[in-house]
Structures are given as structure tokens and as C-alpha cells.
Simulated assay, not measured.
Amino acid sequence: MVSSDTPPVEASRARPHRLRLSIGAAVVLGLVVLSAAVGLGIMRGQAAPSESVPLTGAAASPAPRGDLYVHVLGAVERPGLYVLDVDARLVDAVAAAGGTTDDADLGAVNLARILADGEQIVVPVVGAVGDPGAPSVRAADDLIDLNTADQAALETLPRIGPALAERIIAWREENGRFQSVDDLLAVPGIGEKLLEAIREGVRV
């Protein structure tokens, strides 16, 4: 009778062992699945920003361009006030005014000159160049405007001859408008003493 009861005892001891092995395998499998899910979530989180990078305002649209106002007078078809692009040149102002008349002296103006806001442009007629009272070379206060005066007008200043007048105009064409009378010191041949001699007769 003893020998017949032994197999059932061994079988009952084996079943809990297999049960423990099954629970352990399930735990390991669950951990593997959980690790895979966490890793996938991290990868998605890292990739998300590269898929939706917003454009800044500066990148989305170009900076707005400014405008400048110029008053065109003289030998043009339609004298008046015109609004031009900020990088406009004198030829653009003349074109906006309908072009020049038949008696315009284009040799007295620099059509390639860059314009400035608030500038008054006077296209002279033939024979008007060199007149010290002409509005194209003198301002309302009778001072010579360094940014609009031609060579003949500059030569009316003390100690300014043809060579210095040409240098002033050349500097203006290469560097843009004079921002102050003191900018004349940047013109070759003009020093402190010469500047003081002409300071009272010029403006910008």
C-alpha cells in the first residue's frame, strides 16, 4: 500500500514548481513589453519637435521696406511730391515726375545719386547752372546744401576750387548724403581750418 501512494505525492509536489515557473515567465514577458513601450514613447517624443518647427515672424515674411518723400521741381513734366522706395535714385524721382522737359540740363544733375527722405530736387534748365541764386544749388536760407549742390555752387565757397568741389561731389556719390557739416573732414584735402572757413555758408 505504501508503494502505491508514492506517485501521487511526487505529482503534487511537481505542480507548484511548474506554476512558479509559469508566473516568472509571465513577469519577465511583461517587463519586456513594458520596456519596449517606454522606449517607443521616448523615441516618438524626441522625433515630434522636428516635425512641427514653427517659423518665426522674421523668417515667414521679409522686413517691410521704408518709403521716402521727395519734392521734384524744375524742368520736369509733372512737378510735385512723390513717394519712392527707400533705395531710390534721382533717376527714379525724375521718372515719377513724368520725365524731363526739352530744355532740361541733364548734365547738371547726377541721375545715379541716391536720394534721401525729405529732399527737394530741382532739375535746372539749360543755362541755369552756376547761378548762385538758383534754387537747385542754394537753400531757402541762402546756404549751400552739401547734398544737392553742383560743382559751380560749391566753387562759390571760400577756398573751394574745382578740384575740391569735385572731391566733395565724388565723396557724396560714393558714401551717400552728408549727415553733418563735419563730415566734410572725410573729404581728401579738407582739414579743420578749411572746414571752419566754409562752415557758415553750408548746410545738410
Results as ranks from 00 to 15, higher is better:
Gly107Tyr: 09
Gly107Phe: 06
Asn110Tyr: 14
Leu111Val: 09
Leu111Met: 11
Arg113Pro: 00
Arg113Ser: 02
Leu115Ile: 07
Gly118Ala: 03
Gly118Trp: 02
Gly118Pro: 09
Gln120Met: 14
Gln120Val: 12
Ile121Arg: 01
Val122Pro: 11
Val122Asn: 13
Val122Trp: 14
Val122Gly: 08
Val123Thr: 15
Pro124Ile: 06
Val125Arg: 15
Val125Pro: 14
Gly127Phe: 08
Gly127Ala: 08
Ala128Glu: 14
Gly130Phe: 01
Asp131Glu: 11
Pro132His: 01
Gly133Trp: 12
Ser136Ile: 04
Arg138His: 13
Arg138Asp: 06
Ala139Lys: 15
Asp141Val: 11
Asp142Cys: 02
Leu143Tyr: 07
Asp145Ile: 05
Asn147Gly: 09
Asn147Ala: 11
Thr148Glu: 04
Ala149Lys: 03
Asp150Phe: 04
Asp150Trp: 02
Asp150Gly: 13
Gln151Ile: 13
Ala152Met: 12
Ala153Asn: 06
Thr156Gly: 04
Thr156Lys: 02
Leu157Ile: 03
Leu157Val: 03
Leu157Cys: 04
Pro158Glu: 08
Arg159Pro: 05
Arg159Lys: 10
Ile160Cys: 01
Ile160Gln: 00
Pro162Ile: 08
Ala163Thr: 14
Ala163Pro: 13
Leu164Phe: 12
Leu164Thr: 13
Ile168Arg: 03
Ile169Asp: 02
Trp171Glu: 00
Trp171Ser: 00
Trp171Lys: 00
Glu173Leu: 04
Glu174Ile: 04
Asn175Thr: 00
Arg177Leu: 00
Ser180Lys: 11
Asp182Cys: 11
Asp182Val: 08
Ala186Val: 08
Ala186Tyr: 06
